[in-house]
Design a protein around this nucleic acid. Structure first.
Length: 874
DNA sequence: AACTGTGGCGTACCTC
DNA sequence: GAGGTACGCCACAGTT
């Protein structure tokens, strides 16, 4: 043990202290599982699924999947790679410094790094440590002792990935004990065709394309996987707690991608066998167990035989529960192939993916699945993506017969598996692609957000080029904060332009939009944290329109290059090819996966630049992107007007043209490419559009009669059902309008529909469900301190009358009633208390947004004095 | 002291 | 990430 100065005596911090401190850091500690896994000296090509830190031997561990035999192999680092961080002290200074006495300190040597902020190569000292927690994650870790450290907050497994140039999701093989990239075939002709699109782009971009093409073209294997779902015997009013695992596991369902369908059932006193329900498929095998431990052991054996284990919420529940339950009932550690991490559960020897986390990812939900599911619950996701949801129960789990329990539990496992298999397995393919782009292990892709993906992708590229990864403070110190002021209070910088639309109906409207405007701007204007306000005097003239910032003319920005390359790949190749019906279906599926994966990255690339939690956060870059965006759209609108076209509306990257000729459209598109090198495309053509006069608020009817509704209250999730129905009835009538002449008839129909609803409302012929506002609690009830919104009031009332606690995420259904409170939860309200006038008001605002535009006077319908006149018309 | 009118603000949901 | 809309809450001012 090394001897430090007196003040450097390291006291072991207490358990709690340590725990609390670690909270804010990324360094994960994974439980060590004493199960040995094959580590052959030679293998065929294997897919790299994960790189983790194996604490038992203090080395990086690669989990490899061999498609030729379905096995998982382990490979431990044999290059002597160790955790490290950088400092600007010289090696001599380090040796005299207290860190040299740190018990994890293993050495120091000088390295050269290119500093992108200063555009200079600088010398640093690389401090090597015995284990990741010596670098950071403890109170007295090396980085805490140093005056300043760099690259000290990178999880070790990822650091290993960068330094060894590994790409998770690609093929590697073990050759005489060493890990080597496996040469993989991919269509070279396709690669050269894609390269053609990059003709004339800078050399940095071309190099980048060549490096990245294999990631998009090497096929991904279909990896066998096992889905697991468990049921626990819970006593009436207690939710089973995984960390205690006090209750018996009574049923475990396993379904695999290679045909296994098995239910493990614990025998219990007095439980009926029941009748086999139709919902339980014929070929499901049910195995009964007298002993819970024996049942768990069987399932554990199965877990070890699959490379991938799939669950829905297994991190927080199923696998977590099994892990603790197994210990509680005396199963030996070496028989439990589950490893607890801080917020997740890993499996041995394979990889566990928790689909709940993946589908909860906002970017996945919005950009990969187009918001097709609204809630990331198993039932909601499965219902919308597979068309099959959970089985609904009318009894407690504990009261179900064996057959009913089996059917219920099996269904959950089955749809969990199918979420990875539907549409030719696009979800697994997408995960694999995201691994390749982000350079993250499978588990990280599934569990972490898009900001971590992009961070890791960019860090990897930094290391590849021997760039210093700057600290957040360095970037802010060098580049400053934003100079623009946002229109909305509390935002950090100015955003996009929204044109004020003129209210009315307009026939023959063409909408043009810029193909991924912000990534295009990022690319064409060479925007990166290091290129904005660069240190060169001679670049100061290359200004961002309307802003004091300038952009480097001497070097290409790293993030600009990478994101631009991804953007071009998507726009020029994968997006059009994914729609090309002449291609082989398998190829097309893969292309559409790549297209969607790229979309996720591109759409987030701007967002992270303006997110203060992003480690490469750079406000001048973020505000320059939006400023150039405003510049581009403004100039385009000017040009359209110069071409003689009326611009009705525009938002961020779109412009609505009133009755343009084909020639005018073409000339505008050509002009945009010539002027900005940014593609402007025809996005949609409307038969007609109605504008209410409000921004982000319009209705467009396509030529086929389908209707596009944006921002109108009648479409919002929380508007009462009866208003939505009324609204949709009106919209249906509008969809049938072919020409201005049809409006007179449509208006008559609309009046009659509106009147019917009005009468129903007035006569209270609607039920409470139809009248309910359904609003989500964004936080727990006691966290609303400034105001008490209506749904919170309703929730508080409801809580008094039921045992269940209400909190963040719960959707509260309430109706507006007469009286002091103004609202009541639907469960406590009666139809005769409803405040009809309030609802009339809502009817009015809902309809106003479309009816005023088409010349229906709402005051005439709703105005008190003209009511009689309205009714007497018929 | 109890009402009423107003404007800023908080919250939810949506658009790009 | 910023830009919007709807709507109720709440404080405050100026009555009644």
């Amino acid at each position: 043990m090394s001897v430090g100065g007196l003040d450097e005596r390291v006291e072991e911090p207490s358990e709690e202290e340590e725990e609390e401190f670690r909270e804010s850091f990324e360094e994960e500690e994974l439980e060590v599982v004493p199960i040995s896994v094959e580590e052959p000296k030679n293998t065929g090509p294997c897919v790299l699924l994960a790189v983790i830190y194996d604490g038992s031997v203090g080395k990086a561990l690669c989990k490899l999947y061999d498609p030729s035999n379905g096995k998982i192999y382990y490979w431990h680092d044999n290059t002597g790679h160790m955790p490290y961080c950088l400092t600007d002290l010289t090696p001599e200074q380090v040796k005299r410094h207290a860190v040299a006495a740190h018990k994890g300190f293993r050495g120091v040597y000088e390295v050269e790094k290119y500093d992108p902020l200063r555009d200079r190569v600088l010398k640093f000292s690389k401090i090597v440590a015995s284990d990741p927690l010596s670098i950071g994650g403890r109170k007295r870790s090396i980085r805490e002792i140093l005056p300043k450290a760099w690259e000290d907050r990178i999880p070790y497994n990822n650091c290993y990935i960068y330094d060894s140039g590994l790409i998770p999701g690609l093929y590697y093989m073990v050759v005489d004990g060493d890990l080597k990239p496996a040469p993989m075939e991919f269509p070279r002709d396709v690669a050269s065709e894609i390269l053609k699109f990059f003709n004339g782009e800078p050399k940095e971009v071309l190099d980048c394309v060549k490096d990245w093409l294999p990631l998009f073209l090497i096929p991904v294997p279909d990896i066998p996987r096992l889905a697991i779902d468990i049921e626990v015997l819970s006593t009436a009013n207690r939710i089973p707690e995984p960390s205690k695992a006090e209750d018996q596991v009574i049923c475990i369902s396993c379904v695999s991608s290679n045909g296994l369908k098995r239910v493990f059932m614990l025998k219990r006193e007095g439980i009926d066998e029941g009748v086999k329900p139709k919902t339980l498929p014929e070929d499901v095998e049910i195995r009964f167990f007298e002993d819970e431990g024996e049942m768990l052991r069987e399932v554990f054996k199965l877990i070890t035989s699959y490379p991938i284990i799939v669950t829905f919420n297994g991190d927080d529940f199923d696998l977590n529960y099994l892990r603790h339950r197994a210990t509680n009932i005396g199963i030996k550690r070496e028989e439990i192939p589950l490893a607890m991490g801080r917020n997740y559960v890993d499996v041995v020897p394979g990889v566990h993916i928790d689909l709940y986390k993946f589908f909860s990812n906002r970017s996945i939900q919005v950009y990969a699945f187009g918001n097709r599911y609204k809630d990331a619950t198993l039932d909601a996701v499965a219902t919308s993506l597979l068309g099959v949801g959970k089985i609904t129960l009318d009894k407690l789990i504990s009261d179900l017969s064996y057959y009913d329990l089996a059917a219920y539990c099996f269904r959950d496992a089955e749809i969990t598996l199918n979420l990875t298999s539907f549409n030719d397995g696009i979800v697994m393919k997408l995960i694999m692609l995201l691994m390749r782009i982000s350079k993250l292990s499978m588990g990280d892709v599934v569990r972490r957000g898009v900001s971590v993906w992009i961070r890791n992708m960019l860090y990897y590229e930094h290391r590849r080029r021997n760039y210093l990864i700057p600290s957040k403070e360095d970037i802010i110190a060098a580049k400053g904060v934003s100079v623009t002021r946002a229109l909305i209070k509390g935002k950090k910088y100015m955003g996009a332009i929204v044109i004020e639309p003129k209210p009315g109906i307009y026939f023959n409207v063409t909408v043009l939009d810029f193909a991924s405007l912000y990534p295009s701007v990022l690319y064409r204007w060479n925007l990166s944290y290091e290129t904005i306000n660069c240190p060169h005097e001679e670049c100061r003239g290359n200004r961002v329109p309307e802003l004091p910032h300038w952009i480097c003319t001497k070097r290409r920005g790293l993030s600009s290059t990478i994101i631009g390359m991804l953007r071009n790949m998507r726009v020029y190749w994968f997006k059009p090819k994914a729609k090309d019906k002449s291609l082989d279906p398998t190829v097309r599926t893969w292309y559409s996966v790549v297209e969607q994966g790229l979309k996720v990255f591109l759409n987030a690339s701007y967002g992270v630049m303006g997110d203060e939690n992003f480690p490469l956060y750079c406000p001048p870059v973020a505000e320059s992107i939006t400023a150039i965006g405003r510049y581009v759209i403004s100039k385009t609108i000017e040009k359209a007007k110069a071409l003689g076209v009326d611009v009705l509306y525009g938002d961020t990257d779109s412009i609505f043209l009133y009755q343009p000729t084909q020639d005018q459209v073409k000339r505008l598109i050509d002009w945009s490419i010539g002027e900005f090198k940014i593609d402007l495309d025809v996005d949609k053509v409307y038969r007609y559009v109605t504008f209410s006069g409000l921004k982000k608020n319009y209705l467009g009817v396509f030529n086929d009669g389908s209707v596009d509704i944006k921002g109108l209250v009648g479409k919002k999730r929380n508007t009462p059902e009866f208003l939505k129905k009324l609204f949709m009835d009106v919209v249906e009538i509008l969809g049938k309008v072919q020409s201005p002449r049809d409006f007179e008839e449509a208006k008559l129909k609309i009046r009659s529909v509106v009147r019917d609803y009005y009468v129903k409302l007035k006569c209270r012929e609607l039920n409470l469900d139809d009248l309910a506002f359904r609003v989500k609690l964004s936080r727990d009830l006691d966290h609303y301190v400034k105001t008490t919104p209506q749904h919170v009031k309703a929730a508080k009332l409801l809580e008094k009358f039921q045992s269940r606690k209400l909190g963040a995420g719960d959707i509260i259904s309430y109706v507006k009633v007469k009286g002091d409170m103004g609202v009541k939860p639907i469960q406590l309200a009666r139809i005769d208390e409803v405040d009809v006038d309030k609802y009339v008001g809502h009817m009015e605002t809902t309809l106003r947004q479309i009816l005023e535009a088409i010349g229906i006077n709402l005051d005439e319908i709703f105005g008190v004095r003209s009511l009689d006149k309205f009714f007497s018309k018929k």
